[in-house]
């Protein structure tokens, strides 16, 4: 602001300042309002999603328990509760093969003694976005999508292998 004959007058810079402040305030209000509207309008669905955790040593299998709360280890937000736990042994593909009845040749495999693949089905609450994609605690729930899984003291990067959205909560 300039002072001319003792009077304060606006110049171009002052107008730019005011405009910028107004635009910032308008943007903040707009996004705050639209965000709160979208949150309040989001329907919540119950979702069951299964994640694959591998490899897990036999000593750690007891860490996966039905009823445990599962968190996103990156954000600390709740993904849901463990509904089911299933295990398989990790396989090791060998250099030999067998010929099946239909004539196809399939590599033989063995199983590691104490390494497991753990499939955990988690029951949680999801929202559905504009692309019809389910989200739980900010994570896309899609077959093949990675998740940062934490249950008790166990944390790992896991991948979703299946999911079902069951209906409005």
């Amino acid at each position: 602001m300039d002072k001319v004959n003792g009077k304060t007058k606006f110049n171009l810079i002052d107008i730019l300042v005011l405009l910028t402040i107004l635009v910032i305030i308008a943007a903040v209000v707009f996004f705050a309002v639209s965000r709160s509207n979208s949150l309040s309008n989001e329907k919540q669905y119950t979702i069951d999603f299964t994640v694959k955790i591998t490899p897990v040593s036999g000593d750690n299998l007891a860490l996966f328990k039905v009823g445990d709360t599962v968190l996103d280890s990156a954000t600390g937000k709740t993904l849901g509760k463990v509904k089911e736990v299933r295990t398989e042994k990790v396989i090791n593909v060998t250099s030999s093969y067998e010929t099946l009845e239909d004539g196809s040749k399939v590599a033989k495999y063995g199983e590691y003694e104490d390494l497991y693949v753990v499939y955990v089905t988690v029951n949680g609450v999801a929202t559905i976005d504009k692309h019809d994609v389910a989200h739980v605690a900010g994570n896309r729930i899609l077959v093949g999508a990675p998740l940062y899984y934490a249950e008790g003291n166990y944390a790992a990067t896991v991948f979703c292998t299946a999911f079902t959205v069951e209906g409005v909560k």
């Binding site: 593909v93 250099s95 093969y97 196809s104 040749k105 399939v106 590599a107 033989k108 495999y109």
Partner: peptide, 18 residues
């Protein structure tokens, strides 16, 4: 597919089991 060895030690392409 993966590679496996036949009876003669040759590398052949076979199906992966999973």
């Amino acid at each position: 597919t993966v590679f496996a060895e036949d009876e003669d030690g040759n590398q052949i392409e076979v199906y992966h089991p999973t």
